[in-house]
Amino acid sequence: MKKINSRTVIALCAVVLSIIWIYLGVTKYGLWDSRKGPLPGLFPTGIASVLLVTGTIGAVQSLKEKRATYKREAFEVIAGLILLLAGSYTIGILPSLLIFFVLWQIFIEKMPARTVIISTLVMSSIILGVFVFWLKVPFEKGVLFEFILK
């Protein structure tokens, strides 16, 4: 028996999404009104119906396809992103990014200290110069700093 792989999962997710879209389109938003014409659910339901058919074909086809291989390095990036997100909520976006930028180069990439220092200085100037001083983006300070500032 052929095994389910990530290609199958994507196709099945597409099928599930299409069913949700069709269900909401038909029951909640409506398809056609004899007086008003097409209702908000018509177009999404039509597209979702095409997705339902192609998603099903895609799921069947995927069983014959080779399995996709994922490398450890990709999971390191995902872990880094999750930590970065958690850090942004607690200590704020900019400090988290700075810590991420430095630690990633030191521990994951094993970059020489000189490269780490130069790249951090360049990157910090770009982010501060463009986004903080020029675009004046009000970056999230994080719950910890918000607490201290209170």
């Binding site: 992103l81 990633w104 180069q105 990439e109 490269t115 982010i127 983006v137 009000p138």
Partner: peptide, 22 residues
């Protein structure tokens, strides 16, 4: 080096996504 490009792109993505939606 790729080792610098990876955290640099992540940083730009993060900041860019936040800057456009606040």
């Amino acid at each position: 080096p790729t080792g610098v490009m990876i955290p640099a792109i992540v940083t730009v993505c993060f900041v860019g996504a936040y800057a456009t939606t606040n």
